[in-house]
Design a protein around this nucleic acid. Structure first.
Length: 470
RNA sequence: GGUCGGAUGGCCGAGAGGCGAGGCAAGGGACUGCAAAUCCCUCUACACGGGUUCAAAUCCCGUUCCGACCUCCA
């Protein structure tokens, strides 16, 4: 039996995962800065780390999963002006949209989801420690900076040299008070009209990085197991988190994991690409479970080149797996019990090699379909159990209540089943008298409503595709 | 300029010295009144040029192309 290995951005190697405390894992994931609707790149990160979390839980760990919401930053303030709303209304609006997107994709709710604005006290406490230790300084203008040149380990995550960095774009604007243009703001003095909180250095608001150090410390302690986020956060965000936390004397994250992009036309997704790749737009063409399957199917460290065609193909592939599970339920009259087999385990233990894990699902699918043909119920059950087990780790279990479609009451389903059964009786009668024009017209009529009829050895069965030409 | 990725068959996407993942699409076959679903078979690739090796998609050197980050992007 294999054991879990994970890649670490800091060492750039894959190594055995050993938690700090046996049986426990603490994960901090940099969540959204709630300043725009979520696009699929944002939720890919959520899905990737949700798979990690589910796998750790399956592996026997009690997982504490913290995913923050950064609800105060320059862009939110800018957006508030633009949308003529209070900044907190903007933040809340987009936070809800993110929550809805995560829920639609069955991303498990974090153990806790702290907001930056709820942790000003902790941030001030952290800054006091940093100033006492001589790592940070308040020049008196209301800003507080971290003095990066004093930190020997600064930039080790991104493997850069301080002197090689291009000067900050805003260097000329703010550098007058900085000891070094590359010192970054832990705290920003309030400008007229900006929201602010009182501090010993004057009213102001958090810089971008401070909240994560403060909140990770609050909920996971001085040292914790895994810190995650998107690739772009390596520098400056995570580098600066390390700087703040280590300067304060914390061990901080033992392992760094970063997910790659969803790209379009070979480029990183950006806001300028419009609204079409927002989650709620894509959910008009595919179900949440299918979008999740697509986003989760690439390895988390590989770029995923988005296309509508690839998404559609992926959805087709998923429906094939789902079709087998549904047929198995019809045959066995029992919902499969999730079972994790060895092939899937080995793949997931190898730095969450989902693509290889998918190959194991294909194997089980082939075996299962053959067993249906052969009528071997034991083999059908085993294949269905293994497939459901794999899908549950990937968060794509069609029997998961999280994917239950609201509004489909049992009564409604029973009524629909009865109506279709009537139509199928007519069709069967027509077929028996070899009136294929009549039987095909019934089948075509149902198909136009999105109801697919398949003839099997046990008689006709029906299913809803959700793609009726209404 | 610095740092870091990538280039695999029609497409997607693993692998990281020898035994050619897997999926989708396509073609052929089985089954079917016709379909659908399912199964079987077929197509077989590693950007380019050198090198190391008995053996290279995999290691080394070089080249080309694509991309990311370099102070508020997941």
């Amino acid at each position: 039996m294999s054991s879990l290995s994970l890649y670490d951005t800091l060492t750039r190697t894959t190594a055995a995962f050993v938690s700090i405390k046996e049986g426990e894992v603490g994960i901090y994931l940099c969540g959204a800065t709630v300043q725009a609707p979520p696009h699929i790149g944002h939720v890919r990160s959520g899905v990737n780390f949700d798979i990690l979390r589910r796998w750790l839980s399956h592996s026997g760990y009690n997982v504490t999963f913290i995913r923050n919401v950064t609800d105060i930053d320059d862009k939110i303030l800018h957006k508030a002006v633009h949308e003529e709303l209070p900044w907190w209304a903007v933040a809340m609006k987009y936070e809800r949209e993110f929550s809805e997107a995560y829920a639609a994709l069955n991303v498990l709710a974090p153990t806790y989801e702290p907001r930056a604005t709820g942790h000003i006290t902790q941030m001030i406490g952290l800054m006091q420690i940093l100033i006492e230790k001589g790592a940070a300084y308040a020049p008196g203008n209301g800003d507080v900076y971290l003095e990066v040149r004093k930190l020997s380990s600064y930039l080790t995550l991104s493997r850069q040299k301080l002197d090689d960095l291009q000067p900050a774009a805003d260097a000329e604007a703010t550098s007058s008070e900085k000891k070094d243009p590359r010192d970054f703001a832990l705290w920003k003095a309030a400008k007229p009209g900006d929201p602010s909180w009182p501090t010993p250095w004057g009213p102001g608001r958090p810089g971008w990085h401070l909240e994560c150090s403060a909140m990770a410390h609050q909920y996971l302690g001085e040292t914790f197991d895994i810190h995650g986020g998107g690739l772009d956060l390596i520098f400056p965000h995570h580098e600066n988190e390390i700087a703040q936390s280590e300067a304060a004397g914390y061990g901080f994250a033992q392992r760094w994991m970063h997910n790659a992009w969803v790209t379009t036309s070979g480029e990183k997704m950006s806001k300028s690409l419009g609204n079409s790749l927002q989650v709620h737009e894509l959910l008009k063409s595919v179900r949440g479970i299918e979008l999740r399957w697509y986003l989760g199917s690439a390895h988390y460290r590989s770029m995923l080149e988005f296309s509508h065609e690839a998404l559609a193909e992926s959805a087709t592939a998923f429906k094939r797996i789902e079709g087998f599970l549904n047929r198995s339920v019809e045959i066995l009259s029992v919902v499969p019990t999730p079972v994790i087999n060895e092939a899937f385990t080995d793949a997931m233990n190898d730095d969450l090699a989902v693509p290889t894990a998918l190959a194991s699902i294909s194997e089980s699918l082939k075996v299962g379909n053959n067993a249906i043909t052969a009528g071997d119920k034991a083999v059908i059950a085993q294949a269905a159990n293994e497939i459901r087990g794999a899908l549950s780790i990937l968060g794509c279990d069609p029997f998961d209540p999280a994917y239950a479609t609201s509004g489909n009451s049992d009564e409604l389903v029973a009524a629909l089943d009865g109506v279709i059964a009537l139509a199928l009786e007519q069709r069967t009668a027509a077929r028996e008298r070899r009136d294929f024009a009549a039987s095909d017209s019934i089948r075509d009529g149902l198909a136009s409503l999105g109801i697919i009829i398949e003839d099997t050895a046990q008689g006709p069965r029906w299913s809803i595709t959700g793609n009726g030409s209404r």
